[in-house]
Design a protein around this nucleic acid. Structure first.
Length: 512
RNA sequence: GGGGAUAUCGUCUAGAGGUUAGGACGAGGGAUUUUCAGUCCUUAAACCGGGGUUCGAUUCCCCGUAUCCCUACCA
């Protein structure tokens, strides 16, 4: 039997990183076993506020970004279409009818008010919560129906509930946790079909997983407690059980379910912040899975496919470590070809207003030329900062000085100026640099270094005493790439103008 | 209240009935150097508690404790 694994997100918003991690596991398993990966949209909750139709776009964007496209899903279709549950309603309704017929389910006419009152009472008296199964008794059900019909003047709304066995136990075999035994008498008569005609998760999941030939169900640990209900639905419908695996939850530093207050949780927010797909995938896979005794944490996608197995999934909650993600992303940025990083950084620079947006159709030759000069500048600058970035969005802060106008003292870090502009040799240094660099026949890194060293020697000061003031004068800050590549990328005009502005506006008396 | 799951450095994890309990992130120190970053070397850092089983348990079992999840006409 060929392995078929599904990712079943709900459009309740933008997908959570934990949810996306499950998708990655599903995809890896399918690829590893040479099976199929499918995605199915579980949009059966139509409650306003919980049903977010736009959520589907973020789901699609997340899968695309990681390059884990399903073989079958609502976007490209497939033999089990449709892959959107709201388009499969008759299937669930038929299944519900069959369950009623076979005695595995029953119609319930209890009003929401009654259920709420019931729950409130049981909570306050510290009893077990859950439905009291009033409508499971045909006689009382008919009384309830008749009473509401009279009151409401018409056929009352109803739901279909699972007639959970009241004795014995349901055993779930989880691939990483082993057998888990649940006492049936403690399980609720779960609603399977809601009064709006939509199924709940349990019915829709069982029907679709069976119809779609799913062999492995991977889903979050938060489903573990309710697993016996799903198992009972499969049994009642006469469906064979797929293999179950419940990867652990991803939690925040306080060990609670990862949520907004821990930091970003939506997968797309990591995309926007400039985390590379391979970093995100590598990091997320390792949060709850390990390759065993192989002491590695950096894996390519083919290596992950080769090594992945359900047995390697761990069973305790994992804290999302933003620091480790940053490290890993920095690693992948550093080892990427410069051209890729340049292209990826450009949108961030444009958004920050440091680089012009691409010229439109009707742009003049002049505008096009100006834009291509800007691009040339970006191509020189970005590689210099590539080794320093943890996220692509950091390019704006790291490389801002390459694009901004600087005119001393505005734009200069006051601490940097205080520290390095107090030296007695500052003026002669800048004067000589301006003179030498104005005359430089070609603006190359080598020529810049050569002339600078010569000036240092002539002034009789240590190299560091030359480097640091020059860097601050040219960039306004103390940190950055190597000085001469910085000057080279900055260009002659900008460099000379900045040095001159320091010369013109710096008051030696103000220095410490 | 009930049910389920889980428990190794701060974090992600490896591991085996007998190991110097391993790796990575982060932290400390050092080297390189032109600052930052990077790279290299290096240090500190862990088996929740109590009972069993056993020659021996951190590993297997039980209990306790703690944490998380579920307890909806949400998924």
């Amino acid at each position: 039997m060929t392995v078929r694994v599904r990712y079943a997100p709900s459009p309740t918003g933008s997908p959570h990183v934990g949810n996306v991690r499950t998708a990655i596991y599903c995809w890896l398993l399918a690829r590893k076993e040479g099976g199929q990966f499918l995605a199915r949209l579980e949009d059966t909750d139509r409650t306003p506020g919980r049903y977010v139709p736009e959520g589907i776009y973020d789901i699609e964007a997340s899968l695309r970004y990681l390059g884990i496209l399903p073989d079958e899903w609502w976007v490209s279709g497939g033999p089990c279409a449709p892959y959107i549950q709201s388009e499969r309603l008759p299937l669930y309704q038929a299944a519900a009818d069959r369950l009623i017929e076979s005695g595995h389910a029953y119609r319930c006419y209890c009003s929401r008010a009654r259920l709420e009152a019931l729950r409130a009472e049981r909570e306050s008296s510290r009893q077990q919560t859950g439905y009291d199964r009033l409508c499971r008794d045909p006689e009382r059900r008919e009384q309830m129906r008749a009473a509401r019909a009279e009151q409401e003047g018409g056929e009352p709304s109803s739901v279909v509930r699972l007639a959970m066995p009241t004795e014995g136990a349901t055993v779930l075999h989880d691939e990483v946790r082993g057998d888990i035994v649940y006492e049936n008498r403690l399980q609720d008569d779960q609603v399977l079909l809601k009064s709006d005609g939509f199924p709940t998760y349990f019915l829709a999941c069982a029907v679709d997983d069976h119809e779609m030939g799913i062999t492995h169900i991977l889903r979050g640990d938060d489903w573990l407690s309710s697993a016996p209900k799903l198992v009972q639905v499969f049994d009642a419908l006469g469906y064979p059980l797929p293999k179950f695996t419940h990867p652990p939850l991803i939690v925040g530093a306080d060990r609670k379910k990862l949520s907004k207050r821990h930091g970003s949780t939506q997968f797309v927010s990591f995309m926007e912040a400039g985390y590379l797909p391979e970093a995100l995938l590598n990091f997320l896979v390792l949060l709850g899975w390990s390759a065993g005794d192989e002491n590695r944490e950096l894996f390519t996608i083919p290596e992950l496919i080769e090594r992945f197995s359900i047995g390697g999934i761990t069973d305790s909650p994992a804290v999302f470590d933003y620091e480790k993600l940053n490290w890993m992303n920095g690693h992948y940025i550093r080892q990427s070809p410069a051209g890729r990083i340049i292209g990826l950084c450009l949108p961030y620079l444009v958004k920050a207003g440091l680089v012009s947006p691409p010229p439109g159709q009707g742009a003049s030759e002049e505008e096009k030329l100006a834009y291509s000069r800007e691009l040339e500048h970006v191509r020189r600058v970005v590689p210099l900062e590539q080794g320093r970035m943890k996220t692509l969005s950091e390019i704006v802060e790291l490389a801002g000085f390459f694009f901004n106008e600087l005119d001393y003292p505005s734009g200069y870090d006051p601490k940097a100026a205080r520290k390095w502009f107090g030296a007695p040799h500052l003026r002669p240094l800048l004067e000589r640099e301006i003179a030498a660099w104005t005359a430089l026949p070609s603006w190359t890194i080598e020529a810049l270094e050569e002339t600078t060293r010569a000036i240092g020697d002539a002034l009789g000061v240590k190299f560091a005493e030359v480097i640091h003031p020059t860097r601050v004068a040219a960039t306004g800050q103390t940190v950055g790439p190597g000085l001469f590549e910085t000057l080279w990328a900055l260009g002659r005009d900008r460099t000379l103008a900045r040095l001159q502005s320091v010369l013109d506006n710096h008051d030696p008396a103000s220095a410490e």
